[in-house]
């Protein structure tokens, strides 16, 4: 039967052709077309990233793609992967899958199909070039998640939360001074138009993505089909990560090429000043998570050991 795949991102997003369509194709091929997947892009099955996990849990869609950071309280362990200095953008997805058993229980309201780490978040600033923690002090910075908020606080700036589509207006109007988001922001959200500087090269958060499947839909499949989904889901995690990294790097390069815009690539020395603060933020997040009954220290050690 045909399964519904909810993608809240516009069809032109690189994920669509680079990861989601291959997911559908591989699944069809592996199951002799017993499972076909129709991808509804652009939020046709329901807009925005926030409710996507719900949509898969409740069965609006059979598959849904989303970000754990939008409903952080549901994924405290998974979100440990996004803490600065825990994984890096190149090998992160591999590390996540070596430890997948740690994260799976958090997705138990649905079935976890894919999970991958994103590109590093980078800092777009409206007017102020950021090279040292002093530069960033007191700035209002949009953060993608609670953990990113801790990081920004550790830098001495004020975190502001807002949905991605509002960053553009907020930067343009000075509601915020900067935004922490991955390098795809240059193109996908046109942040190149409303910021002058882009700082990269320090430890920041790396927001993970997931694809989940509705439990009943999964249960209705035979063992062979289930195995195919598990295997292809894992494979697509790696593909999706590669797609996103390429797009993010392209976004950073595109920013550098725009008139009057500057990409600030921190030297190791400059980065170290930020990274020391990031270590504090990580320690604080681990402490908080531990206080709420999660073996956060062990999880982070396991991830860092790779």
């Amino acid at each position: 039967s045909e399964l519904k795949f909810a993608n809240f991102m516009p069809p032109a997003n690189p994920y669509q052709a680079g990861a989601f369509e291959p997911f559908a194709e591989k699944l069809a091929a592996a199951t002799n077309n017993e499972i076909t997947v129709h991808i509804y892009a652009g939020g046709e099955l329901g807009p925005g990233p926030v409710e996507q996990f719900s949509r898969a849990v409740d069965g609006v869609a059979d598959f849904a793609v989303g970000l754990p950071g939008y409903t952080a309280s549901q994924f405290p362990v998974t979100l440990l992967t996004e803490l600065p200095g825990v994984i890096d953008e190149e090998t992160g997805t591999e590390v996540i899958w070596k430890n997948i058993a740690l994260f799976k229980p958090e997705f138990k309201r649905a079935v976890l199909v894919s999970l991958w780490s994103n590109a590093d978040n980078v800092l777009y600033t409206r007017e102020k070039p950021v090279r040292t923690p002093d530069d960033v002090k007191g700035l209002k910075i949009r953060v993608p998640s609670r953990n990113a908020g801790l990081l920004v606080e550790a830098w001495g700036a004020t975190p502001v939360s807002m949905p991605v589509p509002e960053i553009y207006n907020a930067l343009q109007t000075g509601v915020i001074d900067g935004a922490l988001i991955d390098g795809t922001g240059t193109k996908a959200f046109k942040l190149g138009e409303v910021s002058k500087y882009l700082t990269v090269g320090f430890d920041t958060t790396i927001s993970p993505f997931f694809i989940v499947m509705n439990r009943d839909s999964f249960a209705s499949l035979n063992d062979e089909q289930k195995a195919a989904i598990e295997e292809i889901g894992k494979e697509i995690s790696v593909t999706a990560n590669a797609v996103q990294l390429a797009a993010a790097h392209k976004g950073i390069d595109a920013f550098a090429e725009m008139d009057g815009k500057q990409v600030i690539r921190l030297s190791d020395e400059e980065a170290a000043a930020f990274n020391a603060l990031a270590d504090e933020a990580r320690a604080k997040a681990i402490e908080e998570a531990t206080a709420s009954g999660i073996a956060a220290g062990d999880v982070v050690s396991a991830l860092q050991a790779q």
Binding site: K4, G46, G48, V50, E51, D58, G59, V60, E166
Partner: peptide
Amino acid sequence: GGFRTAGAVLVTETYSSVTNY
């Protein structure tokens, strides 16, 4: 898609509409 899906659409879309900032 069955009543389960229909009910899910109903509640999710209502919630996401009224919580639209």
